[in-house]
Structure formats: C-alpha cells, structure tokens
Design a binder for these strands. Structure first.
Length: 328
DNA sequence: AAACCGGGGCC
DNA sequence: GGCCCAGGTTT
C-alpha cells in the first residue's frame, strides 16, 4: 500500500539513555536525521518548553492532576489563570474535598463542561478517603478515579511521578500521524493499533519516557499544530512522512463533523449554569426562564443539570414555584 | 461506535 | 461561520 514510513520506531535505537543532559545542547540544528525521533524532539523541547506553572519544580502531583482535568478540551491559555487561582484556594485534595460544591462550580467559572469540576471534587474525596490524601501513582488506581481516563492517568503518571507511560493526546496523535504515517491529521477515533504504535516509540526507562511525553505534546501544541503547522521550525521536518508526501490534505475531512453549538441543549445548560453561578441566592423558576425562551428545551436542559447533580431544586411551599441553585 | 457534554478565539 | 482545543462517560 504505502512505502516504508520515513520514520519508524526502529530508527530510534535508544542509544545511550543516560547520556544527554551534560554537554552540547544541540548547538544549531535540532533536525539531524541520523538521530532518532525521540532524541530530536526532546532536544527541541529543552529549548522551547513553555514555562507553565504545573511544570514548575514546586508542583505537586495533585496540582498536575488538576491541570490535566482542566486541560481536557480547554486550551492552555484559558486554563493557566484558573489553575493558579484554584490551587491558591485549594492546594490539596483535602482542601477541595471539604469545599462547598457551589464554590467549586463558581471557581470553575467558564472553563466549560462543568461536570469536570464535579468529578474533580469527587476525585479529591476518593483520594482522601482511599489513598490517604496522596495521588496514587499506579495505572489502575488512577483510572478508577472519577474523571480520569486513559490519557489523564498516563499524563499524571508521567508528569507528576516521572514514570513511563504512553501519553497519547490529540497533540501526540497528530505528530505521529504526520511524521510517521504521512497523514495530515489522525483518524477521528483512536485505534488500538495507534496506541500500540505510540507505545513502541516510548523509551524504556522512566526518565526518558517522561521527557518524550512532555516533548511530543509540546511539539504538537507549538509547532505541529492542526491548522498552520510551522514545519520550518520542526526538528522532524527532514524525515517527516507528511512533508515528504507534499503535505497532502486530510483523508478524513469528509467524515469530521463539528459539534453544533447555537441552539443546542449544551448552550442552554451553559446559560442556566451562568445564571446560577452569578446568583448568591436561590433563583425562582420564573427568573430562570429568562435563560432561554423555548420552554421544552429549557426544561430538558434543567432536568439534565439536576440529573447530573450540577443544580439542586428547592420547593419551600407546594403552591409556589420551585427555585434552583448550585449544590452544597 | 456514536452521542453527549462548554466556551472562546482564530482564520 | 467553521474549526480546534493536554477527553471522559454513557448508551
């Protein structure tokens, strides 16, 4: 079908694992094809890593976990100030676990997908109750936490504990799709084969694996971007299969469908949540009705929020309309 | 496998 | 106005 990929895991002979950090820091060109993909990307990262607070030396595993949950579908630029405020207010799992849920949802503000905030607090409670207040470092225990899936579990293991993990997010998927497969973008759904291919590229030792995880994600975020990749700044350009093929268009373009937004239940939920976040007191139903004019959709959205535990209902008197508020 | 779940910024 | 963003959970 296709020619041998320009890059392959076997071209990445780990060489001397503990060799890099001392001497020459890749003086000029990071793009030396003779070096493995991993080495080139890690060297690039050493010079171009962003200075993000959840990467600071004084970071905690809990801080890393909080950042990863916030970063699920929310861009870094919007997460950074929210993370600083959040960690200043609730530095430990015990702090968050003890907070009123309404405060947590207000602090989440407009990061989106507020169920994440709810699950993050539940996660804090589980960490306190079942792990002595310490974030666990093994895969199964992390995956068992609310709101933590395969990506976030791997990211926490790698970024917080420096352990080997297959960290495969949208950035890494795109980097590998281009550099190895020669595709403009990865397939819409992650496949098992894709995970195994990514796993084969991860260095064997913990420290190198953790650096590769950080570096490959950063390359995807800063250089190998979805929209306008900066191939002239890429340490892999000389061996990139996608560049070699002339940067062909996306194979799956016809299958991608962007989520509708205007007029959806999600927009109505967002308006209701915004209204309740801003109200210090319970909101009577007639006031809540201002969030959306179409009654059936408004009712459906509210029912969903109640079912999710993001909103609670109060009805002091049976002959009066109920009122609504954030929980706790 | 597909649907559902926010919100903002950039092209 | 379309597209993208350090995904997870549910059906």
């Amino acid at each position: 079908m296709h020619a041998a990929p320009a890059l392959s895991p076997t071209s990445d002979a780990p060489g001397a694992p503990g060799s890099s950090p001392d001497g020459t820091a890749a003086g000029t060109a990071a793009d030396v094809p003779e070096r493995g993909v991993v080495d080139r990307v890690v060297s690039w990262y050493d010079e171009h890593a962003r200075d993000l607070p959840w990467r600071a030396p004084d970071r905690t595993p809990w801080g890393v976990l909080v950042s990863e949950v916030m970063l699920q579908q929310t861009p870094v630029v919007r997460v950074e100030p929210a993370w600083r405020a959040w960690m200043g207010r609730w530095p430990t799992p015990a702090d968050l676990a003890a907070a009123p849920t309404a405060d947590v949802l207000r602090a989440w503000d407009r990061l989106g997908y507020p169920r994440r905030a709810l699950r993050l607090q539940q996660c804090a409670q589980v960490v306190v109750d079942r792990h002595g207040g310490q974030v666990p470092d093994d895969e199964a225990a992390l995956l068992a936490l609310p709101g933590i899936g395969s990506y976030t579990a791997a990211a926490v293991r790698s970024f917080a504990f420096g352990r080997r993990a297959v960290v495969l997010d949208t950035n890494v998927r795109r980097v590998l799709a281009r550099a190895v497969d020669g595709h403009a973008l990865p397939a819409p759904a992650q496949t098992r084969a894709e995970v195994e291919r990514a796993a084969a590229l991860v260095p064997d030792d913990d420290a190198s694996a953790a650096r590769w995880a950080q570096a490959s994600m950063e390359l995807g975020a800063l250089v190998c971007t979805a929209r306008a990749p900066r191939c002239d700044e890429c340490p892999l350009v000389s061996s990139c299969a996608w560049v070699a093929a002339g940067r062909p268009a996306d194979l799956h373009a016809h299958r991608r469908r962007t989520q509708a937004w205007a007029g959806t239940d999600r927009q109505v939920r967002g308006r209701i949540m915004a209204l309740l976040r801003e109200s210090p007191v319970h909101v009577p139903e007639p006031v809540l009705d201002e969030a959306w004019s179409a009654t059936p959709q408004r009712a459906r959205a509210l029912a969903g929020l109640l079912a999710d535990g993001l909103v609670v209902e109060h009805q002091p008197h049976p002959d009066e309309p109920p009122s609504y508020a954030l929980p706790g």
